[in-house]
């Protein structure tokens, strides 16, 4: 994780990355043609079903990464505005 020494530098690229991660997590589950088939099966589950189950942890990791990035970006943005760190991080590890 980036630390606070980065100071007030522009966080726009970080926010774009956050948007990209979330866009992937939202778009892929909605692209039904990607997974509308029965094979290959896995542990007895047709592809259609196990693929969607697999998307759950993937979306979760993408969202968690977005959360961590957004937290860092928010910290920088707030520092740049002369505000305290975000509420969840005051007084130690969140």
């Amino acid at each position: 994780m980036p630390d606070s020494t980065r100071g007030s530098r522009n966080t726009r690229p970080v926010w774009l990355l956050v948007a990209l991660l979330l866009a992937v997590a939202i778009a892929v589950p909605l692209l039904v043609p990607l997974y509308d088939r029965a094979t290959p099966t896995f542990l007895g589950f047709p592809f259609f079903y196990w693929f969607q189950f697999m998307l759950i942890p993937i979306a979760s990791v993408l969202t968690y990464t977005a959360f961590k990035l957004s937290q860092a970006a928010t910290r920088h943005d707030r520092a740049a505005r002369g505000q305290k760190p975000p509420a969840g991080e005051r007084g130690g590890v969140s």
Binding site: L55, A59, A66
Partner: peptide, 14 residues
């Protein structure tokens, strides 16, 4: 309902 509950969370994140 499964893709519904997958895309729900990144959406509310925003």
């Amino acid at each position: 309902a499964v893709p519904y509950t997958i895309v729900l969370y990144p959406i509310i994140f925003i």
